[in-house]
């Protein structure tokens, strides 16, 4: 169906890109191990072991809408932030360094700037998916070790530790808010960062992304989608919160804008 060149360049990016960033994936497992340790430590207060969802809700719960009041500290939820930072570091510099160093040979063989760019977008999305897959495996591993591999969220646990009433959330919605929405939001942010790394430079794109994420935590506004993955800002945790459909639409718009904006820029970009 696809030409061998298309398959070749995508395979190149998936293999080389993921291999080149292996150490970053390993380092990025810190928040998942961290959440396992923290949740395990806190679970002594409860009669049952935490289930699969307790870990993910704790990781992605974030904070409710913040209202600035002098004397009240603004804090970015550290665990949630570390996940975003890890993703940003995985995407960081690979495409630009690849193009600067040996990209000429790959791009002339790809024979198409569009193909090269979309291959990098696919790499970015695949990196995010792989990162989350590693996280899921770690948490499943933790569940196996504790002997409770359950996909039913504990109401008491979540009310006390995560300020979330899971009785109001269906099982499918739980999968969406714990895995799918954070994954989608991370892909959108990664694609934005990818585009920024070509337009500006990897470091400035990284700084811009971090700034955008922090500002998104501060302001809960549709323009700032950086905090879309926060569960406590969803409609399930607070009235008037971010709706699932709204989050999905925003993420899709950002993904499309980043991919096509990047393509338009890269189409005219001189490689020298």
């Amino acid at each position: 169906m696809w030409s061998s060149t298309r398959r070749g360049i995508i395979k190149y990016d998936l293999c080389q890109g993921l291999r080149a960033n292996m150490w970053k994936f390993l380092a990025g497992t810190v928040p998942f191990f961290g959440v396992v340790m923290i949740v395990q430590e806190r679970s002594v207060l409860f009669s049952t072991e935490p289930s699969f969802f307790e870990y993910f809700i704790y990781l992605f719960k974030g904070i409710k809408n913040y209202t600035p009041v002098p004397g009240q500290q603004f804090e970015v939820p550290i665990l949630w932030m570390i996940v975003q930072v890890s993703m940003a570091l995985i995407i960081y510099d690979y495409p630009v360094v690849n193009l600067e160093k040996y990209g000429i040979q790959t791009i002339i063989r790809a024979k198409s700037r569009a193909l090269w760019w979309f291959s990098k977008c696919i790499w970015a999305a695949a990196s995010v998916v792989l990162y989350y897959a590693v996280g899921i495996l770690i948490i499943l591993g933790a569940c196996m070790l504790t002997g409770k591999i359950s996909f039913i969220a504990d109401q008491e646990w979540n009310m006390v530790m995560n300020e979330l009433d899971v009785s109001l959330i269906t099982h499918e919605q739980l999968w969406l808010i714990c895995i799918c929405i954070p994954l989608m939001s991370s892909i959108a942010l990664s694609l934005l960062q990818l585009t920024g790394s070509f337009v500006l430079s990897p470091v400035y794109s990284f700084l811009l992304l971090l700034s955008y994420i922090v500002i998104s935590v501060y302001y809960n506004h549709s323009c700032f989608m950086g905090a879309n993955s926060m569960i406590l800002r969803s409609e399930f945790a607070m009235p008037g919160g971010n709706t699932l459909s709204g989050i999905v639409i925003t993420n899709i718009i950002v993904m499309c804008a980043a991919v096509f904006g990047g393509y338009i820029y890269f189409r005219r970009h001189d490689i020298y």
């Binding site: 061998s4 395979k11 293999c15 040979q105 790809a110």
Partner: peptide, 21 residues
Amino acid sequence: PAFVPYYSGLKNLQILADIKG
């Protein structure tokens, strides 16, 4: 000439040749 620094010469050429196949 710029190639992946931690691969051998053959590996570098193989990776590039695999693109067009």
